[in-house]
Every structure is written in C-alpha cells, then in structure tokens.
Design a protein around this nucleic acid. Structure first.
Lengths: 335, 335
DNA sequence: TCAATGGAGTAATACGTATTAGTATGGTCG
DNA sequence: CGACCATACTAATACGTATTACTCCATTGA
C-alpha cells in the first residue's frame, strides 16, 4: 500500500527524517540547509507523492487547524432558519482562515461526547442552553471555547459572541411608544435562556423610560387563543410584542390566535417581533429587528481563532453585535 | 495545565501505562487482569477526570470514529435547499452510529486541502463536479470514500450513493405522453454533470418509447425570453420539461420567461420539472419528482461506515435511490 | 524436586512528525 | 597551530495510545 512517509523520502534523498521534516515544514526554526539538499528532498517528496499525515502532525505539533462546532440539538434541525445562517457564517470564516470544522453530533446516546471536542484546537458552542459543568471543565483546562450567544453562567467567564438583544428590544418598545402606544402585551418564551432575559430587560427598561405599561405572558402556558386576545384588546391593549427565538413557536401561536380572533394587523392591533418571524411566512412584513446570524458565526470564528493562536493582542472575550431594526408594516399609529 | 494522560492514571493506580490502556480499552485482546486492578484503574481514571486523546488513539489504532465531509463549494450556500437536507441526513445517521463529522471547507486558496481528509476514517464527497485526480489518489491508497451523487469517472470505481434520475425522468415523460403531449421542449443545464446526463438519458429513452418528440435547449445559452417561448408554442410545443439542479437557475429563468410571455400554466402550456423547484416559490405545485436528499445522506453514511469497518458483508459500493413522483398541478391533458 | 501450567501484568515498541541540542567538517584568524 | 566560528546536517526525543511478546510468580502433578 503506497503510504509514503518522511522516512521514505529521507532514504531516497540520502538525508535524515529530521531534515525532511525541516525542509517540508518550511524550515520555520531557522535550521541551516543548503539549497542542494533542499531541492533533493523536495524532488524526492514530489516523485514519491508524499502526503503529510495530519494525525501525526497534530500529535507532534499540538495544533491542527481544526475548529470544533458543538450543538446541543441536531445542527440541522427541520427548522433551518436559525442555525443555518450561523453555520454558513462559521463555515465561510473558517474557510477564509484555512481551518476545517469538526461537527460534534450531540446524540443522547453518548452524552460525554463533549469531551471529544478536544480533538480540535478550540470549539464553538451553540444552543439555547448549555451543559455548564462540562464547559467548566474545558475552561479549567484552558481549552479555547467560544459560545455563540451571550452566556452569563460561570460568572460570565464563558467567552461568547452574541446579539445585543437588550438594545434592539428597547428600540422596538421605543418605536411603539413614539407611535402612541401605552398599553402593550409582551409574549415571551417560558424558559430562562439569556437571550430571553436580555430581551425582557430591554423591554422593561424602555417601557419604564417611555411611561408605557407592559404586561408579560409566558407562552406556551396559559392557553393563547382567540378569547385571550379579545380580552386583551378589551383591556385597552393596542400592541403585542412577541419574542422570537429558535423554534418560532411563540410567533406561530400568536399569529394563529390573531387569525382565529378575526383581528386585523395592524388595523385592530399592532404587532412587533423581537427578532424575525420564520422566512416563508405569508402576510405583511412584521416589524421587529434582524438578528445578524451570519455575522455572529463569522465573529465567533474570528474570536476563537484568536484564542487558539494568542499573540497579536488579546481581544475581549465578549462581543455583542447590534441588531438592525426592521421597520415592517405592522406598527400603526394610535390617536 | 491539567491534561491527564494514561501515564498519570498508571502512577496513581500503581500499574503500568500499558495496563491502563488495556483496562480503558475494554481489554479486547484478552489480557489476563484481576478485578482488583481493573477497578483501581477505573477509579483512578474517574477521579483524575481522564479524557482520551483522540489524535493519539488514531495514530496508534488507525481508527477514530470521525467521518469527513468534503464539499467542493461552500457547504452552506445561500440556496439552502439542496445541500441542507443531505447534510441533515448525514448528521442524523452519523449521530446514530456514534460518529462525528469533519467538514472540510474547500477554499480556493488551499486546493490540496483535500489531503486533510485523511484525518478522518473515511470521507464523503459532495458536489456537481469532482477533482478526479485527487480522488484517484485517495482511492489508490485504499482510503474509504463515498460520493453523494452518481459518478462515472475513473471507470465507475468511485463508490457512490445517488438518485435514480434516469427512471424518475423517464416517468415524467411517460406522464406527459399519457396526457396526450407529443411535442416537448426540454431545458437542461449547459454542463455535463452525471446528474444532468442521467436525466437526459431517461428523457430520451422514454420519449423514444412513447413516440414523443423532444427538442433540447441548454440554458443559459440562447437567451430564454418571452419571444423564444412564444416561438416554441407556435411550433406546436405543448409542454416544457425543465431540469432542476443545485442552483435552481434553470427553473427560475423559465418561470420568469413564461410570466413575461403572459403564458398561463398549465392552460397554455404544461410544465414539468425533473426534480423540485426551490421551496418558497409561489404559484401552483409544479409536477415532477422528489429527490430523496435526506435519505441520500443517510445511505451515504451507512455505506461509508461499512467501508471503514469491513466485515459483516461487503455491500455494493454503488446505490441508487428512487425518486418518488410529485403529481403537481401543471400537467394538463391535450385533446 | 522438577517440569509444566496458568494467572497477572509489564517492557518494549510502533504509529509519523516536529523540535532541539548537538556533532562533524572545513575554514579563518591571531 | 590551536582557538574559534560558521555551515550543514543529524541523533535523540517528545507527543499519547495500542499491541504483543515476554517475564515473574505461584501452583499443580508425578
């Protein structure tokens, strides 16, 4: 079987394996070599069809240009909208940096698969929730990791690249206030991921500043149906603000309920989403903001790369990207 | 930094590194060991938080439960429709088998990145075209590879899992013939990937069998505009058959031209696609067939896994999955 | 009492590359 | 003519795990 090693080249070129390694490695350590031998080695390597063994290189060099991507749910779920652009950004930036990606598939069968992340030089994490203790282990071992999405666990020591949901959500509320709304119903996810908490903080801060009253409903929970919607409107609510995260479930449920209630948007009630509704949804463009997912992916790779390869200045291990507003057509002015 | 090796465990447990390796490896070679030491080793490993180094394992054992995925274009292009379901299938099956994935990002900057595939136990290839010589090298080295999509290069020696475009395309033509069509215009991609050639063979065979006349246009090429469409209709063409591949460009162009020409479908002309138009396209459901992309991904992983791990019967290295027909609403009956 | 047997574990080595300390050779200078 | 210095290269070793041949010791049987 035609497996060619450096030792084979060495024999042919009449030098030692070490010399071959030095020559093929571009002589980065400044070893003195004559042009003659360099050429002989290169020619022999060419003739024999040498292919470096990446595994061995990694073992010897403790660097392999591999970045891990660990997702806590399948990386390719049925709903493509959320992860896809992030992964696209990750891939693009990784390719630009000459790194390859290892996708660690989180199967419930092997929960300690997370340890395999160490195969890579560093690892990206992606998901609404995070296995804190496993991450803590990696962190303690000084293994470079970056989480995509802000994380507050472990005293904020997890490096991350996230979206600035606080500001973006506040801006949406401000927009509603400027349009004259004073009573708003806010529908959010039931669990407490940082992305949800950030949105709520933005909403509350802006509402307080604008003298606007916000009532929160966690959903699914108390059933979100036509009757509920009707009751809210009767109570004087003029706008709904809906959190939009991974699954799209909250928005879907709201939209359906509005439809069943025969409520027109934005005629009878204004609607804003803290994010974007799933693509392909029919109807008007919903007001809200864009989550710069592709940019998140790129920025995360850049941060991880800089953690793997220190020097050239340590960047801040936390970064928040701004979410550009989407004007949309679903916020009406109130008299 | 707290990197724990087998040697550390050995010291703590008072045994040799070899013993640790044997114990942790499940003693597959039948070394005699007492329960006592086995327990001591396992306990020490647990206490120290041992994590096996996959790189070293691979170097020593030439197996690491890593499958490569090599795409010749970005794996996450703007058009998500084509690769996404395939990758989803790949991921699902890999997770089911307990394997992780390495995505090799093909950047034009480093064309010999393909060599890095050897880091994995085997590699999946994915793309309309293929770098034949690189593949030939891998094949010659007995490195397990599977191409997703039928390949005829290298005398058909490339293992692959593909879709049976021949039969599916023939079935579409047969459907048109049964509906009374006799003159058909066939629009196909300009280049000669196997998937395009297969469709054309299916079309021609079925047309010959049904006594149906088919004229081929490669597009983009002669401009596909309203005037051209009108001319075809004047010539007695009653149906268009459009190839649909990765980009969706051919279908898009055709659909636009039909629209500009003010031609109604299927009122004025029937329309069939050899595949599926991009999701999210408005309008009627186009007649054609489904490409079982997710199943392709799964089958490819299974085949690759069996090549990596021989025994349990060598399966055929070539497999074609059938494409279920989509009835659609764009084939009308001709008097 | 000596060979034979079997149990328990280890020493040695392989895997292929990268790095570093060191050697050998020939020339230069005072 | 020995000290000194480049030059050109190599020996040795590390990386962490897997495998195999081998050693050591305690029984057993005749």
């Amino acid at each position: 079987m035609g497996k060619v090693r450096q030792a084979d080249i060495a024999r042919v070129a009449g030098v030692s394996q070490a010399t071959v390694s030095v020559v093929l490695g571009g002589n980065r350590t400044g070893v003195r070599l004559s042009e003659q031998t360099k050429l002989r080695v290169l020619e022999a390597a060419e003739r024999l069809g040498y292919v470096p063994d990446p595994v061995s290189s990694r073992l010897a060099a403790t660097r392999n240009n591999l970045l891990g991507v660990y997702t806590f749910t399948p990386a390719f779920p049925d709903i493509a909208d959320v992860y896809y652009p992030i992964l696209a950004g990750v891939e693009a930036e990784a390719a630009a940096l000459g790194k390859d990606l290892i996708m660690f598939t989180a199967s419930s069968a092997a929960p300690d698969r997370i340890r395999r992340t160490r195969l890579a030089d560093g690892c990206l994490f992606l998901g609404r929730h995070v296995p804190v203790d496993a991450i803590a282990d990696l962190l303690a071992a000084a293994f470079p990791i970056v989480h995509i999405g802000r994380r507050t666990e472990l005293g904020g020591r997890i490096p991350h690249v996230g979206a600035d949901y606080v500001s973006a959500s506040a801006e949406v509320i401000t927009r509603l206030a400027r349009a004259g709304h004073t009573r708003v119903r806010y529908l959010r996810e039931p669990d407490d991921a940082p992305s949800s908490g950030d949105r709520e903080r933005g909403v509350r801060a802006a509402a307080a500043g604008a003298g606007l009253s916000v009532a929160v409903t966690r959903t699914p929970g108390p059933e979100l149906d036509a009757a509920t919607i009707a009751r809210w409107l009767a109570d004087g609510v003029t706008a709904l603000v809906v959190e939009e995260t991974d699954t799209g479930a909250v928005f879907q449920a709201t939209w359906r309920a509005l439809h069943e209630a025969g409520v027109s948007v934005p005629g009878d009630v204004s609607l804003a989403v803290l994010g974007r509704p799933p693509a392909g949804t029919a109807g008007p463009v919903i007001s809200g903001f864009e989550v710069p997912r592709r940019a998140l992916g790129r920025a995360a790779v850049r941060l991880l790369a800089s953690l793997v390869e220190p020097g050239s200045g340590e960047p801040s291990p936390h970064r928040l990207l701004t979410c550009p507003p989407v004007a949309g057509e679903t916020i009406a002015t109130v008299a």
